[in-house]
Design a protein around this nucleic acid. Structure first.
Lengths: 257, 257
DNA sequence: ATTTTGGTTCCCTTCTGGGGAACAGACTTA
DNA sequence: TAAGTCTGTTCCCCAGAAGGGAACCAAAAT
């Protein structure tokens, strides 16, 4: 368990960083040709050129018309990502069930680099539209998923994440005071689930429960609904119960790791 | 239309290549820790170390227990990949329809780096299991998708791909003679669809039709079924008709690019 | 025919980044 | 508890990698 030394130390490799900057620009469609990329990123055309050639030979990008786009190999890598997460199939099944039971949006998310990343999302029949998508990231302090994970993470890991976090308000209701946030986590640890009361997106309330594994946390499950339907009673009542039950099932089905 | 100069020329950036080698090893779970990677890839521990740090700071990989795994950011990139392909939603809808109409497996694939890459896959009710998955690659010469694409690609692009291909038999029925393959392409161009008669996987026959766009080909749609159900009559009859109809709908719905 | 635009190549120079070796923790074994 | 082993980390060195500038081309635009 060598999880402590996570500080941003050690040497970086410049050309690799440049390569990923280029990928990012292509991915966001900010620039797709040699000259555009050179202008956008402030590198010489020759530099961009050799990088593009390298990425192309690795089959990461592909020539299309007069520019480049990401190659489908990334879809393949995405498959591998899912396989590397313990028990992806079970998660899909259970989150689907949760969404159809509640009719709302259900998510599974896990902690990465101090943020919550969505692994899977299922829409219930009356689910509101959200912009979340698998792979997307949100702050931990303003989401039910993040808070549920934080509350049950081993103390040292939690401390480390909190040290690096800067509390920026996402809505007027976002908790930005570290003291108050610590209290909130205590409440969550006690009651076993976390609430997001329009702290991340206005008009949206969520409940989340952690999926634990031995002494750590694999991730969390949540349900999100519009304020109109999500009264305190519903949130703390049936929804809290549902997410906890789902989290439990996933826990039990997680054999190894 | 600067598609001709595609030869493997130009300078590569060594450290970027190393970075992707490392990613590949992590992705395949061949090695996940510094020492393992160093041994596996024949680099010094310090080299691997700084690469891992770089990839981690780019949030491409993530520490897990005593090793590394791919981060969920790759799922996010996969979303972007799909968005960069013209008309992904239409393709999904139509391929789904095709699969449920025929009951078999339906695919959409496109050409990348001289191979066919699957973009999307839908399973009909009686579909046989195949190992294909989105992002996966297959040779062009042994698949119906690949042949359909090749047959309708502009002559210069086709020539260029064929120059770099080496015909390796995937099954006893794979066409490996360039002459015969050229004839096959002519037939396909005439009849408007391509057949794979157990040329890629034994026991599996497929039909595919190209999705054209202006003077080039976006990709192709296919249906695959077991030999038992896929008689010549069925293949050349209703299935050929179905894939062509689907391809047509997708074509018509492709506004720009 | 001339200009412009974007991609490619070449060369030069710097400083990056790969490797070796030493170091430091964590865990094992005696 | 001490010696031994196995990681990951840091430090340093110097060969050569890689970024940049400029020239060079090809194609498109005027």
């Amino acid at each position: 368990m060598a999880s402590t030394p996570n500080k941003r130390t050690g040497r970086r490799i410049r050309s690799v960083e440049i390569a990923f900057t280029i990928l990012d620009a292509i991915r966001a469609n900010e620039a797709t040709s040699v000259t555009e990329l050179a202008d956008e990123l402030g590198h010489s055309k020759s530099t961009i050129h050799s990088h593009l050639r390298t990425l192309e030979s690795q089959e990461i990008i592909v020539r299309q018309d007069d520019g480049y786009r990401l190659s489908l190999q990334l879809l393949d890598m995405a498959n591998d990502v899912r396989e590397q997460v313990a028990n992806y199939e079970v998660i899909v099944d259970e989150v689907d069930k949760l969404a159809s039971e509640t009719g709302e949006i259900a998510h599974f998310g896990l902690e990465e680099h101090g943020k919550v990343a969505y692994l899977y999302k299922a829409m219930g029949t009356q689910a509101v539209e959200t912009v979340s998508r698998p792979g997307g990231k949100q702050p931990m302090y303003s989401t039910s998923l993040g808070k549920a994970i934080l509350a049950f993470l081993p103390a040292d890991r939690r401390r480390e994440i909190l040290e690096h976090v800067s509390f920026a308000p996402k809505t007027p209701k976002t908790i930005t005071d570290p003291e108050r946030f610590a209290d909130e986590l205590d409440v969550i640890t006690d009651q076993g689930y976390a609430i997001d009361d329009e702290e991340n997106i206005e008009g949206l309330r969520c409940v989340a429960a952690p999926v634990k594994n031995e002494n750590t946390v694999l991730g969390a499950v949540s349900v999100s609904g519009p304020v109109s339907r999500s009264t305190d009673e519903v949130l703390h009542g049936e929804l809290a119960e549902s997410v906890q039950r789902t989290a439990n099932v996933i826990e039990l089905n997680t054999k190894f790791s």
